[in-house]
Amino acid sequence: MLKNLTHVHRPSTIEEACALLAAQDRKNVALAGGTFLAESADLTIQGLVDLSRLELGYIRDTGTGYAIGAMTPVQDVFKSPVLQGPSGKLLKAATGRIGSTLLRHAITVGGNLVCVFPWSDLPPALLALDAEVQIRKGIPKRTVPVQTLLERNPRDFLDRAELVTEIIVPAFGPGTGTSFTKFAKTANDYGLATVAVRLTLRQGLIREARLAISGATKRPVRRPAAEAWLEGLAPTPALFAEAGVRAAQDLDLTQDFRASKEYRSEILPVLVRRGLEEALRQVTA
Protein backbone atom coordinates (compact mmCIF):
# COMPACT_ATOMS: atom_id res chain seq x y z
CA MET A 1 0.00 0.00 0.00
CA LEU A 2 1.15 3.53 -0.77
CA LYS A 3 0.85 4.72 2.82
CA ASN A 4 1.87 8.32 2.19
CA LEU A 5 -0.26 8.91 -0.86
CA THR A 6 -2.23 12.15 -0.56
CA HIS A 7 -3.08 13.21 -4.11
CA VAL A 8 -4.35 11.73 -7.36
CA HIS A 9 -4.07 13.96 -10.43
CA ARG A 10 -5.95 13.42 -13.68
CA PRO A 11 -4.27 15.54 -16.34
CA SER A 12 -5.80 15.74 -19.81
CA THR A 13 -2.64 16.67 -21.72
CA ILE A 14 0.90 15.28 -21.85
CA GLU A 15 2.31 18.74 -21.03
CA GLU A 16 0.19 18.90 -17.90
CA ALA A 17 1.19 15.36 -16.88
CA CYS A 18 4.91 16.13 -17.30
CA ALA A 19 4.56 19.35 -15.29
CA LEU A 20 2.96 17.34 -12.45
CA LEU A 21 5.76 14.77 -12.58
CA ALA A 22 8.33 17.59 -12.43
CA ALA A 23 6.80 19.07 -9.25
CA GLN A 24 9.44 19.59 -6.59
CA ASP A 25 7.18 20.05 -3.57
CA ARG A 26 5.80 16.52 -3.74
CA LYS A 27 6.85 13.20 -5.27
CA ASN A 28 4.38 12.40 -8.00
CA VAL A 29 4.69 9.25 -10.10
CA ALA A 30 2.97 8.16 -13.30
CA LEU A 31 0.02 5.76 -12.97
CA ALA A 32 -0.71 3.59 -16.02
CA GLY A 33 -2.66 0.35 -15.45
CA GLY A 34 -1.86 0.35 -11.75
CA THR A 35 -0.88 -3.30 -11.23
CA PHE A 36 2.71 -2.35 -10.29
CA LEU A 37 1.82 0.54 -7.97
CA ALA A 38 -1.03 -1.38 -6.31
CA GLU A 39 1.59 -3.78 -4.95
CA SER A 40 4.11 -1.07 -4.10
CA ALA A 41 4.95 -0.06 -0.54
CA ASP A 42 7.05 2.95 -1.59
CA LEU A 43 6.73 5.43 1.26
CA THR A 44 8.21 8.27 -0.79
CA ILE A 45 5.29 8.37 -3.24
CA GLN A 46 2.87 11.18 -2.37
CA GLY A 47 0.98 11.71 -5.59
CA LEU A 48 -0.23 9.68 -8.58
CA VAL A 49 -0.53 11.14 -12.06
CA ASP A 50 -3.24 9.11 -13.79
CA LEU A 51 -2.34 8.88 -17.50
CA SER A 52 -5.68 7.44 -18.62
CA ARG A 53 -7.00 10.74 -20.01
CA LEU A 54 -4.05 11.46 -22.32
CA GLU A 55 -5.54 9.53 -25.27
CA LEU A 56 -2.53 7.23 -25.47
CA GLY A 57 -4.53 4.05 -26.13
CA TYR A 58 -4.13 3.24 -29.84
CA ILE A 59 -2.50 0.89 -32.35
CA ARG A 60 -1.75 2.43 -35.75
CA ASP A 61 -0.28 1.11 -38.97
CA THR A 62 2.31 3.72 -39.99
CA GLY A 63 3.21 2.16 -43.34
CA THR A 64 6.71 1.25 -42.15
CA GLY A 65 5.50 -0.45 -38.98
CA TYR A 66 3.26 0.19 -36.03
CA ALA A 67 2.81 2.97 -33.49
CA ILE A 68 1.36 1.75 -30.20
CA GLY A 69 0.21 4.25 -27.59
CA ALA A 70 1.85 3.68 -24.22
CA MET A 71 -1.52 3.37 -22.45
CA THR A 72 -2.80 0.61 -24.74
CA PRO A 73 -3.76 -2.44 -22.63
CA VAL A 74 -1.67 -5.46 -23.64
CA GLN A 75 -4.94 -7.35 -24.24
CA ASP A 76 -5.62 -4.97 -27.13
CA VAL A 77 -2.22 -5.82 -28.64
CA PHE A 78 -2.95 -9.54 -28.18
CA LYS A 79 -6.28 -9.20 -30.04
CA SER A 80 -5.36 -6.46 -32.51
CA PRO A 81 -6.59 -6.80 -36.10
CA VAL A 82 -4.12 -4.05 -37.10
CA LEU A 83 -0.95 -5.90 -36.13
CA GLN A 84 0.11 -8.30 -38.89
CA GLY A 85 3.16 -10.03 -40.33
CA PRO A 86 6.22 -11.21 -38.39
CA SER A 87 6.13 -8.19 -36.02
CA GLY A 88 2.43 -8.61 -35.32
CA LYS A 89 2.87 -12.33 -34.69
CA LEU A 90 5.64 -11.79 -32.16
CA LEU A 91 3.82 -8.95 -30.36
CA LYS A 92 0.68 -11.09 -30.07
CA ALA A 93 2.57 -14.18 -28.94
CA ALA A 94 4.32 -12.20 -26.21
CA THR A 95 1.33 -10.21 -24.93
CA GLY A 96 -0.84 -13.35 -24.99
CA ARG A 97 1.48 -14.92 -22.42
CA ILE A 98 1.28 -12.02 -19.95
CA GLY A 99 -0.57 -13.01 -16.75
CA SER A 100 -4.27 -13.63 -17.30
CA THR A 101 -7.11 -12.02 -19.24
CA LEU A 102 -7.98 -9.89 -16.19
CA LEU A 103 -4.39 -8.66 -15.87
CA ARG A 104 -3.97 -8.12 -19.61
CA HIS A 105 -6.89 -5.68 -19.56
CA ALA A 106 -5.12 -3.63 -16.87
CA ILE A 107 -1.43 -3.87 -17.84
CA THR A 108 -0.40 -1.32 -20.45
CA VAL A 109 2.33 -1.52 -23.07
CA GLY A 110 4.17 1.47 -21.59
CA GLY A 111 3.76 0.34 -18.00
CA ASN A 112 4.99 -3.16 -18.80
CA LEU A 113 8.15 -1.67 -20.32
CA VAL A 114 8.92 1.07 -17.78
CA CYS A 115 8.05 -1.09 -14.75
CA VAL A 116 10.01 -4.00 -16.20
CA PHE A 117 10.39 -7.17 -14.15
CA PRO A 118 13.06 -9.80 -14.78
CA TRP A 119 10.40 -12.10 -16.25
CA SER A 120 8.44 -9.51 -18.30
CA ASP A 121 7.18 -11.02 -21.55
CA LEU A 122 6.79 -8.02 -23.87
CA PRO A 123 10.28 -6.44 -23.50
CA PRO A 124 12.20 -9.32 -25.13
CA ALA A 125 9.77 -9.20 -28.08
CA LEU A 126 10.36 -5.45 -28.44
CA LEU A 127 14.13 -6.03 -28.28
CA ALA A 128 13.95 -8.68 -31.01
CA LEU A 129 11.96 -6.27 -33.20
CA ASP A 130 14.37 -3.32 -32.78
CA ALA A 131 11.48 -1.29 -31.34
CA GLU A 132 11.89 2.28 -30.14
CA VAL A 133 10.07 4.39 -27.61
CA GLN A 134 9.00 7.97 -27.91
CA ILE A 135 9.64 9.91 -24.74
CA ARG A 136 8.02 13.27 -24.02
CA LYS A 137 9.04 15.91 -21.54
CA GLY A 138 6.25 18.37 -22.03
CA ILE A 139 6.58 19.52 -25.64
CA PRO A 140 10.17 18.28 -26.26
CA LYS A 141 10.48 14.67 -27.32
CA ARG A 142 13.18 12.12 -28.01
CA THR A 143 13.16 8.68 -29.55
CA VAL A 144 15.24 5.98 -27.91
CA PRO A 145 15.76 2.29 -28.78
CA VAL A 146 14.07 -0.06 -26.30
CA GLN A 147 17.50 -1.63 -25.91
CA THR A 148 18.91 1.66 -24.57
CA LEU A 149 15.94 2.09 -22.24
CA LEU A 150 16.55 -1.38 -20.80
CA GLU A 151 20.30 -1.00 -20.26
CA ARG A 152 19.48 0.03 -16.73
CA ASN A 153 16.25 0.42 -14.75
CA PRO A 154 14.02 2.43 -17.15
CA ARG A 155 12.72 4.45 -14.19
CA ASP A 156 16.29 5.63 -13.60
CA PHE A 157 16.93 6.17 -17.30
CA LEU A 158 13.94 8.51 -17.61
CA ASP A 159 14.15 12.01 -16.28
CA ARG A 160 11.64 12.64 -13.51
CA ALA A 161 9.46 14.76 -15.81
CA GLU A 162 9.63 12.36 -18.76
CA LEU A 163 6.90 10.05 -19.98
CA VAL A 164 7.07 7.16 -22.43
CA THR A 165 4.19 7.98 -24.78
CA GLU A 166 4.54 5.61 -27.72
CA ILE A 167 6.21 2.37 -28.79
CA ILE A 168 7.37 2.29 -32.41
CA VAL A 169 7.70 -1.19 -33.92
CA PRO A 170 9.12 -1.68 -37.42
CA ALA A 171 7.47 -4.06 -39.88
CA PHE A 172 9.65 -6.58 -41.69
CA GLY A 173 9.21 -7.64 -45.30
CA PRO A 174 9.51 -11.04 -46.94
CA GLY A 175 12.10 -13.41 -45.57
CA THR A 176 11.47 -12.70 -41.90
CA GLY A 177 10.23 -15.06 -39.20
CA THR A 178 9.70 -14.57 -35.47
CA SER A 179 9.05 -16.78 -32.46
CA PHE A 180 8.31 -16.50 -28.76
CA THR A 181 9.22 -19.37 -26.44
CA LYS A 182 8.30 -19.06 -22.78
CA PHE A 183 9.11 -21.72 -20.24
CA ALA A 184 7.02 -21.47 -17.06
CA LYS A 185 5.76 -23.85 -14.40
CA THR A 186 2.09 -23.15 -15.19
CA ALA A 187 0.24 -21.49 -18.08
CA ASN A 188 0.17 -18.11 -16.36
CA ASP A 189 3.16 -18.20 -14.04
CA TYR A 190 6.20 -15.99 -14.64
CA GLY A 191 8.61 -17.36 -17.20
CA LEU A 192 11.75 -18.84 -15.75
CA ALA A 193 13.37 -18.44 -19.15
CA THR A 194 11.79 -16.79 -22.18
CA VAL A 195 13.26 -16.31 -25.64
CA ALA A 196 12.13 -13.96 -28.43
CA VAL A 197 13.67 -14.49 -31.86
CA ARG A 198 13.66 -12.68 -35.19
CA LEU A 199 15.40 -14.12 -38.25
CA THR A 200 15.65 -12.40 -41.62
CA LEU A 201 16.91 -14.54 -44.48
CA ARG A 202 18.23 -13.56 -47.87
CA GLN A 203 19.17 -16.08 -50.56
CA GLY A 204 19.16 -18.88 -48.04
CA LEU A 205 21.52 -17.16 -45.60
CA ILE A 206 20.77 -15.44 -42.30
CA ARG A 207 21.01 -11.73 -43.02
CA GLU A 208 19.88 -10.52 -39.60
CA ALA A 209 19.29 -12.35 -36.33
CA ARG A 210 17.90 -11.10 -33.06
CA LEU A 211 17.90 -13.14 -29.84
CA ALA A 212 16.42 -11.61 -26.70
CA ILE A 213 15.77 -13.31 -23.41
CA SER A 214 13.94 -12.60 -20.19
CA GLY A 215 13.12 -14.51 -17.02
CA ALA A 216 16.69 -15.68 -16.56
CA THR A 217 18.54 -12.43 -15.94
CA LYS A 218 18.01 -9.28 -13.88
CA ARG A 219 16.53 -7.50 -16.87
CA PRO A 220 15.58 -8.64 -20.39
CA VAL A 221 18.66 -8.62 -22.62
CA ARG A 222 19.74 -9.21 -26.22
CA ARG A 223 22.52 -11.66 -27.06
CA PRO A 224 24.53 -9.66 -29.63
CA ALA A 225 27.52 -12.03 -29.84
CA ALA A 226 25.32 -15.01 -30.73
CA GLU A 227 23.32 -12.85 -33.16
CA ALA A 228 26.46 -11.68 -34.97
CA TRP A 229 27.79 -15.23 -35.11
CA LEU A 230 24.60 -16.41 -36.90
CA GLU A 231 24.64 -13.68 -39.52
CA GLY A 232 25.90 -14.67 -42.95
CA LEU A 233 25.52 -18.40 -42.26
CA ALA A 234 23.03 -20.93 -43.62
CA PRO A 235 20.42 -22.09 -41.08
CA THR A 236 20.96 -25.72 -40.07
CA PRO A 237 19.99 -27.71 -36.95
CA ALA A 238 23.66 -27.83 -35.89
CA LEU A 239 24.01 -24.07 -36.31
CA PHE A 240 20.94 -23.39 -34.19
CA ALA A 241 22.14 -25.76 -31.47
CA GLU A 242 25.49 -23.97 -31.37
CA ALA A 243 23.74 -20.56 -31.33
CA GLY A 244 21.78 -21.71 -28.29
CA VAL A 245 24.97 -22.57 -26.44
CA ARG A 246 26.54 -19.23 -27.41
CA ALA A 247 23.43 -17.26 -26.41
CA ALA A 248 23.57 -18.76 -22.91
CA GLN A 249 27.24 -17.90 -22.40
CA ASP A 250 28.52 -14.99 -20.29
CA LEU A 251 25.17 -14.32 -18.68
CA ASP A 252 24.64 -13.35 -15.09
CA LEU A 253 21.77 -15.80 -14.52
CA THR A 254 19.30 -15.30 -11.69
CA GLN A 255 18.51 -17.81 -9.00
CA ASP A 256 15.21 -17.93 -7.11
CA PHE A 257 12.66 -20.38 -5.74
CA ARG A 258 11.44 -21.11 -9.27
CA ALA A 259 14.76 -22.30 -10.62
CA SER A 260 18.46 -22.46 -9.86
CA LYS A 261 21.19 -20.87 -11.98
CA GLU A 262 22.23 -24.33 -13.10
CA TYR A 263 18.70 -25.19 -14.23
CA ARG A 264 18.41 -21.98 -16.19
CA SER A 265 21.78 -22.51 -17.84
CA GLU A 266 20.62 -25.99 -18.95
CA ILE A 267 17.29 -24.96 -20.45
CA LEU A 268 18.32 -21.67 -22.05
CA PRO A 269 20.33 -23.19 -24.97
CA VAL A 270 17.41 -25.54 -25.67
CA LEU A 271 14.86 -22.72 -25.69
CA VAL A 272 17.04 -20.60 -28.00
CA ARG A 273 17.46 -23.52 -30.39
CA ARG A 274 13.71 -24.22 -30.42
CA GLY A 275 13.02 -20.49 -30.86
CA LEU A 276 15.35 -20.33 -33.87
CA GLU A 277 13.77 -23.45 -35.39
CA GLU A 278 10.29 -21.98 -34.98
CA ALA A 279 11.33 -18.58 -36.37
CA LEU A 280 12.76 -20.36 -39.43
CA ARG A 281 9.44 -22.20 -39.92
CA GLN A 282 7.66 -18.85 -39.72
CA VAL A 283 9.81 -17.13 -42.36
CA THR A 284 7.46 -15.56 -44.85
CA ALA A 285 7.87 -16.03 -48.57
Binding site: G34, T35, L37, A38, L48, G99, L102, L103, H105, A106
Partner: peptide, 23 residues
Amino acid sequence: GSCGACAVLIDGRPRNSCLTFAA
Protein backbone atom coordinates in the same frame (compact mmCIF):
# COMPACT_ATOMS: atom_id res chain seq x y z
CA GLY B 1 -4.15 -10.33 -9.01
CA SER B 2 -3.69 -14.08 -9.14
CA CYS B 3 -7.13 -15.52 -8.38
CA GLY B 4 -9.77 -13.33 -10.04
CA ALA B 5 -12.36 -13.62 -7.24
CA CYS B 6 -12.50 -9.80 -7.17
CA ALA B 7 -13.16 -9.38 -10.92
CA VAL B 8 -15.52 -6.61 -11.97
CA LEU B 9 -16.18 -4.90 -15.29
CA ILE B 10 -14.72 -1.40 -15.45
CA ASP B 11 -15.99 0.43 -18.52
CA GLY B 12 -16.61 -2.96 -20.11
CA ARG B 13 -13.20 -4.45 -19.31
CA PRO B 14 -12.88 -7.34 -16.84
CA ARG B 15 -10.25 -6.42 -14.24
CA ASN B 16 -8.97 -7.40 -10.83
CA SER B 17 -10.50 -4.83 -8.47
CA CYS B 18 -7.79 -5.71 -5.90
CA LEU B 19 -5.13 -4.22 -8.20
CA THR B 20 -7.15 -1.19 -9.28
CA PHE B 21 -6.94 2.00 -7.29
CA ALA B 22 -10.47 3.20 -6.58
CA ALA B 23 -9.26 6.63 -7.72
